[in-house]
Amino acid sequence: MVLDHVSFVLNRGEAAALVGENGAGKTTLIRILSQIFKPDYGFFTLDGVRSDISSSDIKNKTGILFSGDGGLYDRLSAEENIKYYAELNSISKSSYNRMLEILVQELSLSEFLHDRVSTFSRGMKQRTAIARTLITDPDFIILDEPSTGLDVIAAESVKKIIYRLKQNGKTLLFSSHSTDEIFSCADRIIIIHNGKINCDMQRESYEALYGRDLTCFIKE
């Protein structure tokens, strides 16, 4: 069993950090929330809509950034990657154009928007992948290790993006191994260990009790 009785509530506009060692079950949980996996039993709700009843409604309101190289098509340009995702999610042309204009500016994509992804650095790929995640203007955003493998400057820009999303009232769940990212971006800290939630606390409370030590709930 990868996940065992996982249960938590995210409030609208809240940013929660999902913390845990490799193999703890973070990615599986994210895949379930992304509707890629179906849990053996149980469900989750988004704005009152149950995942086991209307998965497409939830998919339309969720934006996901998976870990790794951003999951981009190397032979397509940045714009083509973003557009493909938007079209698969039935985003209208006007909404697409409006969001693209905003994202190009915020993520500084204009320089390489029409270039092939195969020529991109890791940071450029991540910015493109984030733009793709946000092109549908989702209410609920899941970021799986958004700054892993990025250089300091790129990781800092990811932090800024998370701040902006919070300011815009988006609900965020992000997994991270970066203490700095977790404590500077998260309102809540959820620690998962061996498929179970060991800790679910407001960031301020956690910091007051345990400081910035994230290992206390990961020990056997």
Partner: peptide, 13 residues
Amino acid sequence: ERLTIEILLSCSV
């Protein structure tokens, strides 16, 4: 291999 399958499966398709 490119890990694009996750994105594809998370779309409304």
